[in-house]
């Protein structure tokens, strides 16, 4: 019954993985919060240009693992990570790796929309500015407009780019955060329950947006909604109590789960 944590998921590699490049390779990752062992011997390969969904009951470690991929866990006191996480073959926990550069490559969208208390323009322009991406003012404007368009927010805000980002509705704020993440040209976008604070209509727009941009990014989304995972992702990983129980093509996962715990969870028997 106990799925051996050491067992690599690579043995029953999902079909999608075979068809695409692998972007992230994690092997034997452990995360500790002080004494608490939050992620246990996790190994997973995540493909590029696809949406991978992490599902599982609260406290199962899916957000923790997500935050390990751009080392946001570094900011938490007492958090310790062992094992290797390779992005494009480069271990992000190497001593010589620059965390700031990593986070520019691995963008993040948070659970609660958190625009800066600045104008819409400044929100998107901040990232390019600190990374020196824009060569000139017109360059910067192009990047901002392009990012807002990619986040399908531009049409709604084009007349009020100088208005505060905090004045937008929740769904618009979240799309603004996505635009902000896109603006620094990341390769990977991590989304930590991006729709949990939004109403169904705003959620649907975010899902549409994810679907539109997935061709260009490696997207990982943590979600509590299995319907959302089913709608938006190509791959799904099920976490339980710090273990990666199952990882596979979303269609397979929701129709023929391999593990009993997965089946119990997606049929609503616990969680």
């Amino acid at each position: 019954m106990d799925a051996s944590p050491q067992k690599s998921t690579l043995s029953n590699s999902p079909r999608i993985l075979a068809a695409r490049d692998t972007k992230i390779v994690a092997s034997d990752v452990n995360v500790y919060y002080g004494e608490k062992h939050a992620i246990k011997h996790l190994s997973i390969d995540i493909p590029d240009r696809a949406v991978s969904a992490f599902i599982g009951p609260s406290g199962c470690g899916k957000s923790t693992f997500l935050r390990s991929i751009n080392r946001m866990n570094d900011t938490i006191d007492g958090c310790r990570v062992t094992g290797d996480i390779l992005v494009d073959g480069k271990n992000i926990y190497d001593r010589d790796l620059d965390v700031v550069q990593l986070r520019a490559r691995v963008g993040m969208v948070f659970q609660k929309p958190n625009p800066f208390p600045k104008s819409i323009f400044e929100n998107v322009a901040y990232g390019p500015r600190i990374h020196g991406i824009a060569k000139s003012k017109t360059d910067l404007e192009e990047i901002v407009v392009g990012s807002l368009k990619k986040a399908s927010l531009f049409e709604e805000v084009k007349d009020r780019l100088d208005h505060p980002g905090t004045g937008l509705s929740g769904g618009q704020q979240q799309r603004l955060c996505i635009a902000r993440a896109i603006a620094v040209n990341p390769e990977i976008i991590l989304m930590d329950e991006p729709c949990s604070a939004l109403d169904p209509i705003a959620s649907a727009r975010i899902e549409e947006l994810i679907d539109e941009i997935r061709q260009n990014y490696c997207i990982i989304i943590v979600t509590h909604s299995m319907q959302q995972a089913a709608r938006v992702s190509q791959l799904t990983a099920f976490f339980h109590l710090g273990d990666l129980v199952e990882f596979g093509d979303t269609d397979d996962m929701f129709t023929t789960p391999q593990d009993k715990r997965t089946q119990d969870y997606i049929t609503g028997r616990f969680g």
Binding site: F110, K112, N114, G127, I130
Partner: peptide, 27 residues
Amino acid sequence: VPPSIKEAALGVGASHQQAVFHHVLPL
């Protein structure tokens, strides 16, 4: 100052110092 602001800045690749001086301190 809500930690989400600092996280947002770190999330787009601001260094710790940039996050503090650009966002936390002004607020």
